[in-house]
């Protein structure tokens, strides 16, 4: 089955391999020495605030942007020297819409199938099958300009799958969609990965999205990867759940006793009570209550905080992910366009 050495390399290579990737937009380091690997069949997430370098990285992996330095390989092919092989192996859903609104949903799909040389005999059933999956079959002959934002997104996801890509790139797949549509799209992505075995590389600045979908997550900030692991391990790296007990007063003996409770890592007295870092809050809280009662403590209220990726993000980058609001994003977008314009003419494929 594998006649040439080329083919063999491709088979053993990871789905994505990135080494020391750099993109310098005239002095601004959009991507600054990024390295990572994505295995075949993984759902890998790139998490970071707007402007962190997520889209720039995707653009380089998708052969749209030429890196300043470093290597990027997709399915064993070099993204700069073998762009055609890479393009045939990947499907992409861009951050910004990229459908032709003057064509119908079906025509958009058909156009894509032709460009990707999908076998003529299977084009029609394949399009209908995918449109059914994203629940657009009944709207397939309507012009895309009559679709809602969520419908366009679904159409793009279906289109990205048309040619059986090995790796599917999703750049902010649920940006600006309502919660219900987001859950739908998550279900499609999970389904695709599990049933069709498609490797998924997604970028997001939604913590819950990364947590929900990704087997592994790289946290990227200011063009650099600051953390890379499974969501569970990343969360565990924070030490555990945080329990806050509101207590009027408390003795040293009582604090000592709480430190002895199974699953409690640390107890810190604060002005308005105690902060406990515990193994598993839901299980440990009843034990804490028992000990408190034994020492005659009256607990006025309790709050449990389970660490989220947001906490990891703050811990690793020193700032929250939502610090930059829409304005920041728009600014970056317009900057991005500006860079594109200025970097034009410096080569490319």
């Amino acid at each position: 089955m594998a006649p040439a050495g080329m083919e063999k390399d491709t088979m053993n290579a990871p789905a994505i391999l990135v080494r020391d990737l750099v993109k310098d937009f005239d002095g601004i380091m959009a991507v600054d020495g990024v390295s990572f690997e994505v295995g075949k069949g993984e759902v890998f997430g790139f998490l970071g605030p707007n402007g962190a370098g997520k889209t720039t990285t995707i653009s380089m992996l998708c052969t749209l942007l030429r890196p300043t330095k470093g290597t990027a390989q997709v399915w064993g092919y070099d993204a700069f020297h073998q762009p055609d092989q890479v393009r045939s192996s990947i499907g992409i859903v861009f951050q910004d819409p990229s459908v032709d609104e003057e064509l119908t949903g079906y025509e958009n799909m058909w156009f894509h199938a032709r460009l990707y040389k999908v076998d003529k005999n299977v084009i029609d059933p394949r399009i209908n099958g995918l449109l059914e999956m994203v629940e657009l079959l009944d709207r397939k002959d309507d012009l895309v300009k009559t679709y809602s934002g969520g419908m366009k997104r679904r159409l793009e996801i279906a289109r990205g799958l048309l040619h059986h890509p090995k790796v599917l790139f999703l750049d902010e797949p649920t940006l600006g969609l309502d919660p219900q549509t987001r859950r739908h799209i998550w279900a499609y992505i999970r389904n695709l990965n599990q049933k069709e075995g498609v490797t998924v590389f997604l970028t997001t600045h939604y913590m819950d999205e990364a947590d929900e979908l990704c087997g592994r997550i790289a946290i990227i900030d200011k063009g650099k990867i600051v953390a890379l692991d499974t969501p569970e391990k990343l969360k565990a790296s924070l030490g555990g759940d945080v329990v806050h007990l509101a207590i009027a007063e408390c003795t040293e003996g009582c604090i000592e006793a709480l430190r002895g409770v199974q699953g409690v890592h640390s107890v810190e007295p604060k002005e308005d009570g105690l902060i406990l870092v515990v193994e598993e809050g839901a299980v440990t809280i009843p034990l804490i209550f028992d000990t408190a009662k034994d020492h005659g403590l009256v607990v006025q209220s309790v709050t449990l905080k389970v660490p989220t990726l947001e906490d990891i993000f703050i811990k690793t980058t020193g700032h929250g992910i939502r610090d930059e609001k829409v304005e920041g994003r728009d600014q970056f977008r317009s900057k991005g366009r500006h860079y594109m314009k200025r970097s034009r003419g410096k080569g490319g494929h």
Binding site: C62, L64, R87, I90, P97, S98, D100, L115
Partner: peptide, 15 residues
């Protein structure tokens, strides 16, 4: 402007 150019540019089609 409307993003469709990217769809064409990443397709395995010669410029």
């Amino acid at each position: 402007e409307f993003g469709f150019l990217k769809e064409i540019m990443v397709a395995p089609v010669s410029r």
